[in-house]
Computed example of a mutant assay.
Amino acid sequence: MSTTFVPSLAQQSSASVKNYQALDLLCTLIAVLDMNGAICFANAALENALGQSRRTMEGGEFALSFTEPALLDKALSGARSNDFAALRFEASLQRLGQEPLPVHATVSIAEQTGHVMVEMWPLEQQARQDREERLREQAQANKELIRNLAHEIKNPLGGIRGAAQLLQMDLASPELREYTTVIVHEADRLQALVDRLLAPHRHPHDVGDVNIHEVCERVRSLVLVEFPQGLKITRDYDISIPEFRGDSAQLIQAVLNIVQNAAQALSLRIAQGDGEIILRTRVARQVTLGRQRYRLALELHVIDNGSGVPDAIKERIFYPLVSGRDGGSGLGLTLAQTFVQRHHGLIECESQPGRTDFRILIPLP
C-alpha cells in the first residue's frame, strides 16, 4: 500500500522561500511577507540594517519594524484586495540602539508564490550612489578636458620657449637676458604641469599582485623622510586582507598623494609636535561601487588630526586645480582618484575640524 507525502504548511513555506535566497546578493533591503504581513524571508542587507538575524525576524509582523506601522498595513490591505500592482511610500525603519533609518519602500506581489515583496532603499544610500555617479561622471569629463587642454597648451609652449632661447642668444645686455631667462623658466614650469596632467593617460595599467600593506609601508617611509619631526604615522592594519590584482605603482602614487596632502595640511600641528596620520585597513562587505555589487572590498582610511577641509571646496576637492593651500597645484587628489578608479574603486572624504578621513574603496576577489 503506497502513501502520499503531503508537506506541512511550514515546509511548503520554507520550500517556496528558498526561491528568494538569491536576494542576499542585492544591496537593497528586502522582506518577503505572507498576505498577513508575517516575515517569511529577510535578505542579508535587511539583517545588517536592522541589526537582527532573519531567524529572529521570521514569523514576526513586519509592520512593527516601521515607526508608523499603519503605512505597511495599508499597503498589505491593498495587496489582499488586488487594488494595485505596486505601491510606493516613504517611511522609517526602527533599529536596535540606533536612530530610525529613512527608506523609500515599494510593496509588490510575487505572483508565482503569492508572497508580498517589500523592497526598501535607504535614502542615505541613494544619496551616496548619486554622489558616486556624479564623481565618476565628473572624473570622466575632467579627464577629457585635461587631455585636450594639455595638448592645446603644449604645442605653443614649445614655440614660446624656443623663441625665447633664440632671442636670448642675440641679446648683449645681461639685464635683457634676465627677461628671456624668466620666459624659459616659466615655460619649463608650465611644461612640467602639463606633463603631470597627462601622466595618468600616458602610462599603461601594469597589473600584478598587490599587497596593500606593502603599499602603505612604502608611503609611510617616504612621508616620514619628508617630515622627520613632529609627525606620527600610526599603523592600524587588518593583516588578513588578501592580495588583489592591480597596479602597485599607481596605488603607491595614489596613497602617497593623499598622505602628503594630509601632512601638508598638518603643518601647524607638526610645528607643535603633535601631527598624526592613521593608516587603517579593513575589509568591507557587500559594497556597491559604480552601481555594481561586490561581496568584499578593501577599505583603506587615511585619517589626520588637522583643521579639516575648508567648507568652500569640500564638494570640489577632487576637481583638477582645486587646492586648499597656497602654492598647491590642485592635482594630487585628482590623480589619486583617477588611479583608484582604474581599479574600479573610489575615494571618499569626510572632514570636520580635528578629523579628516579619506577612504579608499577597491573591490577584492
Rank of each mutant, 00 (worst) to 15 (best):
M35C: 13
G78A: 00
A31M: 03
K74E: 08
A105F: 12
C40W: 12
L135S: 12
A31R: 01
G59R: 00
A91N: 04
Y20L: 08
F62E: 03
S14I: 01
V32W: 05
K154I: 11
L145E: 03
A91T: 12
A110N: 12
A22Y: 14
Q52A: 01
A86D: 08
Q52S: 02
A139N: 11
D130A: 09
A105M: 15
G59H: 00
K18H: 12
E47T: 08
A85K: 15
Q94E: 03
D130R: 14
A139F: 04
N36G: 14
T67D: 09
G97T: 00
K18G: 03
H151C: 09
E124P: 05
N19T: 14
V118Q: 01
S108A: 12
F84Y: 15
T56H: 06
L23I: 04
N43K: 08
H151Y: 13
Q12T: 10
M117E: 05
E47V: 05
S77W: 14
A38L: 08
I39P: 10
Q125T: 12
A150I: 03
Q12S: 09
A110H: 10
G59A: 00
F41K: 06
A105C: 15
S81I: 04
G59Y: 00
A75N: 08
E133C: 07
E144M: 10
M57C: 09
A86C: 11
A79N: 13
A79F: 12
L149M: 08
Q21K: 15
S14Q: 08
Q98I: 01
E133Q: 13
L29R: 02
R95L: 02
L23K: 07
A141I: 00
W121I: 06
V118R: 02
N36F: 13
L72H: 06
M117W: 05
L149N: 12
Q112E: 11
L149P: 13
A63W: 01
